[in-house]
Amino acid sequence: MSKLSRFLIGWHVQRRVLSALMLRELATRFGRENIGFLWIMVEPLLFAVLVGLIWRALHGPEEYGINMIAFVVTGYIPLTFFRQAFGRSVKAMQANASLMYHRQVHILDLVFVRFLVEMAGGMMAYLFIGLVLFILGIFPLPHDVGMFIAGWFIYAFFTLSICLLASPLSETSDVLEKLVPVISYLMIPFSGTFNLAMWLTPQARHYLLYSPPVSGMEMMRHGLFGDVVRPYYSLSYALSFSLIMALIGLALCRKVRRTLVVE
């Protein structure tokens, strides 16, 4: 068999396995009762809307010319995506170890699937709430869709790289699991959720841009709100940071797989 045809067969099997795992994950987590898998967008929606209303009450209807609710929603949806994906990557291998009974399923699939489910949920929630708020007249028509999507993928790639790292680390030590809530909370300032880089002092901005998701968030907001947001970002830095994290994570996953004990 040629290398290419072997690769194509492998790719075909991999896709089949990933979709089987996704459906299984949705069925185990949400069941088939009432709205079923649509639950995956409920949490980000509730967070974004409720926090948006609180900020609206505390800080008034607008900030620097951006509608307050729209601003909070655009920050909170990606943030809940990150938090959920990160939280669920912890101990993902141990929780799904019984899947190792089927040789087609690889250890990385377990991490990918949980990440993909969260990403799909985040994207659906974003689209849904964007439409509703647009109809209500408080959400803009995207200024630059390409920029917005690129920002989302920078943010998502960073999230994936953290999942790839957190998942094997949580198998080797229990400390990480206990730190999840704190890390999730600390992501608020370091993800650019509630602040645009242009509002900060040059020095603060310089330090904040060391955090890759800030670049993604800035691009998304510029893509959405247009010129009211002057974006600050570094594509090459954000991508190479995430790439290095992801590579270390892949190596760790391999290492953990060798010693994984399956009941």
Partner: peptide
């Protein structure tokens, strides 16, 4: 080899897919 929270049919469906 099984997912305890899923039904026998769901496990069969999963295995058929994989």
């Amino acid at each position: 080899g099984f997912q305890g929270s899923l039904t026998g049919y769901d496990n069969a469906r999963f295995i058929a897919r994989v």
